[in-house]
Simulated assay, not measured.
Amino acid sequence: MTHADVVVIGGGIAGVSAAAMLAEHMSVLLLEAEPRTGYHSTGRSAAIFIRNYGNATLRALNAVSALFMEAPEGVADSSLLSPRGELLLAEEDEVDDLEAYVAGATGMEMLSPAQAVELVPILRPERIARAAIEWDAQDIDVDRMLSGYQRLFTTRGGRIVTGAPVTAMRRSGGIWQVTADGTDYAGPIVVNAAGAWAGAVAEMAGASPIGVQPMRRTAAILPAPEGHDVRRWPLFGSVTERWYAKPEAGKLMVSPADEDPVEPQDAWADDMVLAEGLHRFEQAVTVPVTRVEHSWAGLRNFAPDRTPLTGFDARAEGFFWLAGQGGYGVQTAPALSRLTAALIAGLRPEVTREVVAALDPNRFLPR
Protein backbone atom coordinates (compact mmCIF):
# COMPACT_ATOMS: atom_id res chain seq x y z
CA MET A 1 0.00 0.00 0.00
CA THR A 2 1.26 3.46 -0.94
CA HIS A 3 1.13 6.02 1.88
CA ALA A 4 1.13 9.83 1.82
CA ASP A 5 0.14 12.61 4.20
CA VAL A 6 -2.54 13.73 1.74
CA VAL A 7 -4.30 11.84 -1.06
CA VAL A 8 -5.82 14.21 -3.64
CA ILE A 9 -8.62 12.75 -5.78
CA GLY A 10 -8.93 14.54 -9.11
CA GLY A 11 -6.38 15.81 -11.61
CA GLY A 12 -8.09 18.90 -12.95
CA ILE A 13 -6.69 22.36 -12.31
CA ALA A 14 -8.19 22.39 -8.80
CA GLY A 15 -6.59 19.12 -7.73
CA VAL A 16 -3.24 19.70 -9.41
CA SER A 17 -2.82 23.24 -8.07
CA ALA A 18 -3.84 22.21 -4.55
CA ALA A 19 -1.48 19.24 -4.66
CA ALA A 20 1.37 21.53 -5.72
CA MET A 21 0.71 23.93 -2.83
CA LEU A 22 0.33 21.12 -0.29
CA ALA A 23 3.54 19.40 -1.44
CA GLU A 24 5.54 22.29 -0.02
CA HIS A 25 4.50 21.16 3.47
CA MET A 26 3.84 17.40 3.34
CA SER A 27 3.88 14.28 1.16
CA VAL A 28 1.10 14.26 -1.42
CA LEU A 29 -0.27 11.66 -3.84
CA LEU A 30 -2.71 12.60 -6.62
CA LEU A 31 -5.12 10.10 -8.21
CA GLU A 32 -6.68 10.85 -11.60
CA ALA A 33 -9.26 8.56 -13.21
CA GLU A 34 -8.40 9.50 -16.79
CA PRO A 35 -5.19 8.74 -18.70
CA ARG A 36 -4.00 12.34 -18.26
CA THR A 37 -4.63 15.33 -16.04
CA GLY A 38 -6.92 18.15 -17.14
CA TYR A 39 -9.07 15.85 -19.28
CA HIS A 40 -12.56 17.09 -18.39
CA SER A 41 -13.60 20.64 -17.43
CA THR A 42 -10.08 22.08 -17.27
CA GLY A 43 -9.31 21.08 -20.84
CA ARG A 44 -12.64 22.46 -22.10
CA SER A 45 -12.61 25.81 -20.35
CA ALA A 46 -13.42 29.11 -22.06
CA ALA A 47 -10.09 30.26 -20.55
CA ILE A 48 -11.12 33.78 -19.62
CA PHE A 49 -10.34 35.67 -16.39
CA ILE A 50 -13.18 38.01 -15.44
CA ARG A 51 -12.60 39.85 -12.17
CA ASN A 52 -16.28 40.74 -11.76
CA TYR A 53 -17.59 37.24 -12.45
CA GLY A 54 -19.53 35.62 -9.62
CA ASN A 55 -20.79 36.62 -6.20
CA ALA A 56 -18.88 38.57 -3.53
CA THR A 57 -17.02 35.46 -2.31
CA LEU A 58 -15.91 34.54 -5.79
CA ARG A 59 -14.80 38.10 -6.51
CA ALA A 60 -12.63 38.01 -3.39
CA LEU A 61 -11.03 34.81 -4.71
CA ASN A 62 -10.61 36.38 -8.14
CA ALA A 63 -8.64 39.24 -6.59
CA VAL A 64 -6.19 36.81 -4.96
CA SER A 65 -5.87 34.74 -8.13
CA ALA A 66 -5.23 37.83 -10.28
CA LEU A 67 -2.10 38.72 -8.32
CA PHE A 68 -0.71 35.22 -8.78
CA MET A 69 -1.60 34.91 -12.46
CA GLU A 70 0.17 38.16 -13.23
CA ALA A 71 3.33 36.93 -11.49
CA PRO A 72 3.05 33.10 -11.30
CA GLU A 73 6.21 32.38 -9.34
CA GLY A 74 7.14 28.71 -9.48
CA VAL A 75 4.51 27.93 -12.10
CA ALA A 76 5.51 30.05 -15.13
CA ASP A 77 8.21 32.58 -15.99
CA SER A 78 5.75 35.23 -17.21
CA SER A 79 2.13 36.25 -16.79
CA LEU A 80 -0.55 33.64 -17.51
CA LEU A 81 -2.87 36.43 -18.70
CA SER A 82 -3.17 38.34 -21.96
CA PRO A 83 -5.51 41.18 -23.00
CA ARG A 84 -9.06 40.35 -24.15
CA GLY A 85 -11.90 42.36 -22.56
CA GLU A 86 -15.50 41.32 -21.95
CA LEU A 87 -18.39 43.13 -23.66
CA LEU A 88 -21.78 42.56 -22.05
CA LEU A 89 -24.89 43.29 -24.11
CA ALA A 90 -28.44 43.91 -22.94
CA GLU A 91 -31.64 43.84 -24.93
CA GLU A 92 -34.58 45.82 -23.55
CA ASP A 93 -35.63 43.07 -21.14
CA GLU A 94 -32.06 42.70 -19.84
CA VAL A 95 -31.30 46.33 -18.96
CA ASP A 96 -32.03 45.89 -15.26
CA ASP A 97 -29.74 42.86 -15.17
CA LEU A 98 -26.91 44.80 -16.77
CA GLU A 99 -27.32 47.76 -14.43
CA ALA A 100 -27.33 45.47 -11.40
CA TYR A 101 -24.18 43.70 -12.63
CA VAL A 102 -22.33 46.98 -13.20
CA ALA A 103 -23.47 48.36 -9.84
CA GLY A 104 -21.75 45.48 -8.05
CA ALA A 105 -18.65 45.54 -10.23
CA THR A 106 -15.42 47.50 -10.44
CA GLY A 107 -13.54 48.73 -13.49
CA MET A 108 -16.49 48.60 -15.89
CA GLU A 109 -17.55 51.21 -18.44
CA MET A 110 -20.99 51.73 -19.92
CA LEU A 111 -21.08 51.93 -23.72
CA SER A 112 -23.60 53.06 -26.30
CA PRO A 113 -24.82 50.61 -28.95
CA ALA A 114 -22.62 52.40 -31.48
CA GLN A 115 -19.55 52.00 -29.29
CA ALA A 116 -20.31 48.30 -28.86
CA VAL A 117 -20.50 47.88 -32.64
CA GLU A 118 -17.15 49.64 -33.01
CA LEU A 119 -15.61 46.91 -30.88
CA VAL A 120 -17.48 44.03 -32.55
CA PRO A 121 -18.61 45.14 -36.05
CA ILE A 122 -20.96 42.19 -36.64
CA LEU A 123 -23.33 43.18 -33.81
CA ARG A 124 -26.81 44.47 -34.68
CA PRO A 125 -27.13 47.89 -33.00
CA GLU A 126 -30.93 47.66 -33.00
CA ARG A 127 -30.70 44.62 -30.69
CA ILE A 128 -28.59 46.49 -28.12
CA ALA A 129 -30.37 48.59 -25.51
CA ARG A 130 -27.31 49.02 -23.24
CA ALA A 131 -23.78 47.69 -23.18
CA ALA A 132 -20.86 47.60 -20.76
CA ILE A 133 -17.27 46.48 -21.00
CA GLU A 134 -14.73 45.16 -18.54
CA TRP A 135 -11.50 46.16 -20.27
CA ASP A 136 -9.39 44.18 -17.82
CA ALA A 137 -10.92 40.76 -18.57
CA GLN A 138 -8.07 38.60 -19.88
CA ASP A 139 -7.37 35.30 -21.59
CA ILE A 140 -5.81 32.59 -19.41
CA ASP A 141 -3.12 30.30 -20.76
CA VAL A 142 -4.70 27.20 -19.19
CA ASP A 143 -2.28 24.69 -20.71
CA ARG A 144 0.76 26.55 -19.40
CA MET A 145 -0.93 27.01 -16.02
CA LEU A 146 -1.81 23.33 -15.60
CA SER A 147 1.58 22.08 -16.78
CA GLY A 148 3.33 24.60 -14.53
CA TYR A 149 1.45 23.50 -11.43
CA GLN A 150 2.05 19.85 -12.34
CA ARG A 151 5.77 20.46 -12.78
CA LEU A 152 5.91 22.28 -9.44
CA PHE A 153 4.09 19.39 -7.77
CA THR A 154 6.47 16.72 -9.04
CA THR A 155 9.50 18.92 -8.29
CA ARG A 156 8.31 19.06 -4.70
CA GLY A 157 8.20 15.28 -4.55
CA GLY A 158 4.54 14.73 -5.40
CA ARG A 159 3.38 11.68 -7.31
CA ILE A 160 0.59 11.50 -9.90
CA VAL A 161 -1.17 8.22 -10.69
CA THR A 162 -3.35 8.39 -13.82
CA GLY A 163 -5.87 5.82 -15.03
CA ALA A 164 -6.88 5.35 -11.40
CA PRO A 165 -10.63 5.81 -10.83
CA VAL A 166 -11.53 5.59 -7.14
CA THR A 167 -13.90 2.70 -6.41
CA ALA A 168 -13.90 2.47 -2.61
CA MET A 169 -12.91 4.42 0.50
CA ARG A 170 -12.87 3.59 4.19
CA ARG A 171 -11.31 5.10 7.30
CA SER A 172 -9.74 3.11 10.10
CA GLY A 173 -7.37 4.13 12.88
CA GLY A 174 -7.27 7.72 11.65
CA ILE A 175 -6.20 6.69 8.13
CA TRP A 176 -8.14 6.76 4.88
CA GLN A 177 -7.73 3.77 2.61
CA VAL A 178 -8.57 4.67 -0.99
CA THR A 179 -8.92 1.92 -3.60
CA ALA A 180 -8.28 3.06 -7.18
CA ASP A 181 -7.93 0.72 -10.16
CA GLY A 182 -7.43 -2.22 -7.82
CA THR A 183 -4.59 -0.60 -5.85
CA ASP A 184 -4.84 0.74 -2.29
CA TYR A 185 -3.50 4.12 -1.24
CA ALA A 186 -3.54 5.48 2.29
CA GLY A 187 -3.26 8.75 4.17
CA PRO A 188 -4.85 10.63 7.06
CA ILE A 189 -6.29 13.33 4.78
CA VAL A 190 -8.20 13.02 1.50
CA VAL A 191 -8.89 16.05 -0.72
CA ASN A 192 -12.01 15.66 -2.83
CA ALA A 193 -11.17 17.56 -6.03
CA ALA A 194 -13.12 15.16 -8.25
CA GLY A 195 -15.14 17.77 -10.15
CA ALA A 196 -18.35 16.26 -11.51
CA TRP A 197 -17.65 13.12 -9.49
CA ALA A 198 -17.23 15.00 -6.17
CA GLY A 199 -20.64 13.86 -4.97
CA ALA A 200 -19.87 10.23 -5.73
CA VAL A 201 -16.53 10.44 -3.92
CA ALA A 202 -18.22 12.04 -0.90
CA GLU A 203 -20.82 9.27 -0.83
CA MET A 204 -18.11 6.59 -0.82
CA ALA A 205 -16.47 8.37 2.11
CA GLY A 206 -19.69 8.78 4.08
CA ALA A 207 -19.28 12.56 4.00
CA SER A 208 -22.07 15.13 4.15
CA PRO A 209 -24.54 14.81 1.22
CA ILE A 210 -24.12 18.33 -0.11
CA GLY A 211 -25.41 17.68 -3.60
CA VAL A 212 -22.84 18.98 -6.08
CA GLN A 213 -24.67 19.20 -9.41
CA PRO A 214 -22.82 18.84 -12.74
CA MET A 215 -24.26 21.10 -15.45
CA ARG A 216 -23.41 20.81 -19.12
CA ARG A 217 -21.97 23.79 -21.02
CA THR A 218 -21.77 23.46 -24.82
CA ALA A 219 -19.54 25.32 -27.28
CA ALA A 220 -18.70 25.33 -30.97
CA ILE A 221 -15.97 26.74 -33.19
CA LEU A 222 -17.17 28.78 -36.17
CA PRO A 223 -15.10 30.24 -39.01
CA ALA A 224 -14.35 33.93 -38.59
CA PRO A 225 -16.97 36.10 -40.33
CA GLU A 226 -15.80 36.84 -43.85
CA GLY A 227 -13.86 40.08 -44.10
CA HIS A 228 -13.27 40.37 -40.35
CA ASP A 229 -10.16 39.85 -38.24
CA VAL A 230 -11.60 38.73 -34.91
CA ARG A 231 -8.36 38.34 -33.00
CA ARG A 232 -8.64 41.62 -31.09
CA TRP A 233 -12.35 41.46 -30.42
CA PRO A 234 -13.40 41.11 -26.78
CA LEU A 235 -15.44 38.22 -25.52
CA PHE A 236 -19.01 39.38 -26.16
CA GLY A 237 -22.41 38.10 -25.17
CA SER A 238 -25.73 38.49 -23.43
CA VAL A 239 -25.55 39.76 -19.85
CA THR A 240 -28.11 37.10 -18.83
CA GLU A 241 -26.01 34.42 -20.55
CA ARG A 242 -28.34 33.56 -23.41
CA TRP A 243 -25.19 33.13 -25.53
CA TYR A 244 -21.61 34.36 -25.70
CA ALA A 245 -18.78 34.36 -28.22
CA LYS A 246 -15.01 34.58 -27.87
CA PRO A 247 -12.20 34.84 -30.42
CA GLU A 248 -10.24 31.61 -30.49
CA ALA A 249 -7.17 31.16 -32.73
CA GLY A 250 -8.57 33.49 -35.39
CA LYS A 251 -12.04 31.91 -35.28
CA LEU A 252 -15.08 32.34 -33.04
CA MET A 253 -16.05 30.08 -30.18
CA VAL A 254 -19.79 30.44 -29.58
CA SER A 255 -21.67 28.95 -26.66
CA PRO A 256 -25.40 28.72 -25.89
CA ALA A 257 -24.35 29.32 -22.26
CA ASP A 258 -26.45 26.28 -21.35
CA GLU A 259 -26.68 24.88 -17.83
CA ASP A 260 -28.42 21.54 -18.19
CA PRO A 261 -28.22 19.26 -15.11
CA VAL A 262 -26.64 15.92 -16.04
CA GLU A 263 -25.06 12.93 -14.37
CA PRO A 264 -21.22 12.85 -14.09
CA GLN A 265 -19.95 11.84 -17.52
CA ASP A 266 -17.57 12.54 -20.37
CA ALA A 267 -19.81 15.34 -21.65
CA TRP A 268 -20.87 15.67 -25.26
CA ALA A 269 -22.58 18.46 -27.21
CA ASP A 270 -26.36 18.24 -27.51
CA ASP A 271 -27.20 19.16 -31.12
CA MET A 272 -30.56 20.70 -30.27
CA VAL A 273 -29.17 22.84 -27.45
CA LEU A 274 -26.34 23.97 -29.71
CA ALA A 275 -28.70 24.81 -32.57
CA GLU A 276 -30.93 26.88 -30.29
CA GLY A 277 -27.94 28.77 -28.93
CA LEU A 278 -26.51 29.46 -32.37
CA HIS A 279 -29.92 30.80 -33.38
CA ARG A 280 -29.85 33.26 -30.46
CA PHE A 281 -26.36 34.28 -31.53
CA GLU A 282 -27.48 34.79 -35.14
CA GLN A 283 -30.30 37.09 -33.99
CA ALA A 284 -27.74 39.37 -32.34
CA VAL A 285 -25.33 39.63 -35.27
CA THR A 286 -25.41 40.53 -38.96
CA VAL A 287 -23.77 37.35 -40.28
CA PRO A 288 -25.34 33.89 -40.59
CA VAL A 289 -23.87 30.74 -39.11
CA THR A 290 -22.89 28.75 -42.18
CA ARG A 291 -20.66 26.08 -40.71
CA VAL A 292 -19.72 24.53 -37.37
CA GLU A 293 -16.15 23.29 -37.50
CA HIS A 294 -16.12 21.57 -34.13
CA SER A 295 -18.35 21.28 -31.08
CA TRP A 296 -17.91 19.94 -27.57
CA ALA A 297 -19.25 20.18 -24.04
CA GLY A 298 -17.87 20.31 -20.53
CA LEU A 299 -19.33 20.06 -17.06
CA ARG A 300 -19.52 22.94 -14.59
CA ASN A 301 -20.17 21.72 -11.07
CA PHE A 302 -22.20 23.76 -8.59
CA ALA A 303 -22.97 23.58 -4.88
CA PRO A 304 -26.59 24.48 -4.04
CA ASP A 305 -25.69 28.16 -3.42
CA ARG A 306 -23.27 28.34 -6.38
CA THR A 307 -20.31 29.11 -4.10
CA PRO A 308 -17.36 26.67 -4.02
CA LEU A 309 -16.80 24.14 -1.26
CA THR A 310 -13.41 24.40 0.45
CA GLY A 311 -12.83 22.90 3.87
CA PHE A 312 -13.00 19.82 6.08
CA ASP A 313 -16.25 17.88 6.34
CA ALA A 314 -17.68 17.81 9.87
CA ARG A 315 -19.12 14.32 9.37
CA ALA A 316 -16.08 12.59 7.88
CA GLU A 317 -12.80 13.12 9.70
CA GLY A 318 -9.90 13.99 7.43
CA PHE A 319 -12.15 14.48 4.40
CA PHE A 320 -11.53 17.85 2.69
CA TRP A 321 -13.85 19.31 0.05
CA LEU A 322 -12.40 21.20 -2.93
CA ALA A 323 -15.36 21.16 -5.27
CA GLY A 324 -18.33 23.05 -6.68
CA GLN A 325 -16.25 25.69 -8.50
CA GLY A 326 -18.94 26.14 -11.17
CA GLY A 327 -17.68 28.13 -14.14
CA TYR A 328 -14.92 29.70 -12.03
CA GLY A 329 -12.61 26.73 -11.56
CA VAL A 330 -9.60 27.89 -13.57
CA GLN A 331 -9.63 31.49 -12.43
CA THR A 332 -10.11 30.63 -8.75
CA ALA A 333 -7.57 27.79 -8.70
CA PRO A 334 -4.62 29.89 -7.48
CA ALA A 335 -6.65 31.29 -4.57
CA LEU A 336 -8.38 28.04 -3.61
CA SER A 337 -5.21 25.97 -3.85
CA ARG A 338 -3.44 28.30 -1.43
CA LEU A 339 -6.43 28.32 0.89
CA THR A 340 -6.53 24.51 0.79
CA ALA A 341 -2.86 24.33 1.75
CA ALA A 342 -3.37 26.86 4.54
CA LEU A 343 -6.36 25.04 6.07
CA ILE A 344 -4.73 21.61 5.89
CA ALA A 345 -1.23 22.66 6.97
CA GLY A 346 -2.51 24.94 9.75
CA LEU A 347 -1.33 28.18 8.18
CA ARG A 348 -3.05 31.56 8.19
CA PRO A 349 -5.35 32.00 5.16
CA GLU A 350 -4.75 35.08 3.03
CA VAL A 351 -8.50 35.63 2.58
CA THR A 352 -10.79 36.98 5.29
CA ARG A 353 -12.61 34.89 7.85
CA GLU A 354 -15.86 35.82 6.11
CA VAL A 355 -14.62 34.28 2.85
CA VAL A 356 -13.41 31.13 4.64
CA ALA A 357 -16.84 30.82 6.29
CA ALA A 358 -18.65 31.33 2.98
CA LEU A 359 -16.64 28.46 1.46
CA ASP A 360 -17.06 26.09 4.43
CA PRO A 361 -18.81 22.91 3.21
CA ASN A 362 -20.54 22.56 6.60
CA ARG A 363 -22.69 25.62 5.89
CA PHE A 364 -25.36 23.25 4.57
CA LEU A 365 -25.60 21.22 7.77
CA PRO A 366 -28.57 21.87 10.12
CA ARG A 367 -27.76 24.50 12.73
Results as ranks from 00 to 15, higher is better:
residue 167 T to V: 15
residue 152 L to N: 02
residue 139 D to E: 09
residue 128 I to A: 08
residue 112 S to K: 01
residue 157 G to M: 13
residue 166 V to D: 02
residue 162 T to Y: 08
residue 97 D to K: 10
residue 178 V to C: 10
residue 115 Q to N: 11
residue 104 G to I: 15
residue 109 E to G: 06
residue 164 A to P: 01
residue 111 L to K: 00
residue 177 Q to R: 15
residue 144 R to F: 05
residue 160 I to S: 06
residue 119 L to E: 06
residue 96 D to K: 08
residue 107 G to Y: 06
residue 132 A to T: 04
residue 96 D to I: 09
residue 135 W to R: 15
residue 153 F to Q: 03
residue 147 S to P: 00
residue 103 A to P: 04
residue 164 A to T: 11
residue 137 A to W: 03
residue 133 I to H: 00
residue 146 L to I: 03
residue 159 R to K: 14
residue 108 M to W: 03
residue 173 G to W: 10
residue 159 R to E: 13
residue 93 D to Q: 06
residue 153 F to N: 07
residue 125 P to H: 11
residue 141 D to C: 13
residue 128 I to L: 12
residue 131 A to W: 11
residue 156 R to N: 15
residue 139 D to M: 00
residue 96 D to R: 14
residue 98 L to D: 09
residue 162 T to N: 14
residue 130 R to A: 12
residue 112 S to A: 12
residue 112 S to T: 15
residue 162 T to D: 02
residue 140 I to P: 05
residue 163 G to Q: 05
residue 167 T to L: 13
residue 179 T to G: 07
residue 173 G to L: 02
residue 93 D to T: 09
residue 110 M to A: 14
residue 148 G to Q: 10
residue 106 T to F: 07
residue 100 A to D: 11
residue 140 I to M: 12
residue 97 D to R: 08
residue 176 W to A: 05
residue 148 G to A: 11
residue 168 A to V: 02
residue 150 Q to V: 15
residue 158 G to C: 01
residue 129 A to M: 04
residue 112 S to P: 04
residue 108 M to S: 03
residue 166 V to K: 02
residue 137 A to D: 07
residue 95 V to E: 13
residue 163 G to L: 01
residue 122 I to N: 07
residue 161 V to G: 03
residue 115 Q to I: 09
residue 157 G to R: 05
residue 171 R to G: 10
residue 150 Q to D: 08
residue 114 A to S: 07
residue 104 G to M: 15
residue 131 A to N: 03
residue 94 E to R: 06
residue 167 T to I: 08
residue 142 V to Y: 08
residue 107 G to S: 02
residue 108 M to L: 13
residue 136 D to H: 14
residue 138 Q to I: 03
residue 163 G to K: 00
residue 167 T to E: 15
residue 169 M to F: 00
residue 166 V to W: 07
residue 105 A to D: 02
residue 171 R to N: 09
residue 100 A to V: 12
residue 99 E to T: 11
residue 145 M to W: 04
residue 111 L to W: 04
residue 111 L to F: 10
residue 162 T to G: 00
residue 144 R to L: 13
residue 144 R to K: 07
residue 140 I to Q: 02
residue 174 G to W: 14
residue 169 M to I: 02
residue 160 I to G: 00
residue 93 D to E: 11
residue 165 P to Y: 08
residue 128 I to Q: 05
residue 150 Q to S: 08
residue 116 A to M: 10
residue 123 L to Q: 02
residue 131 A to Q: 04
residue 110 M to L: 15
residue 160 I to T: 05
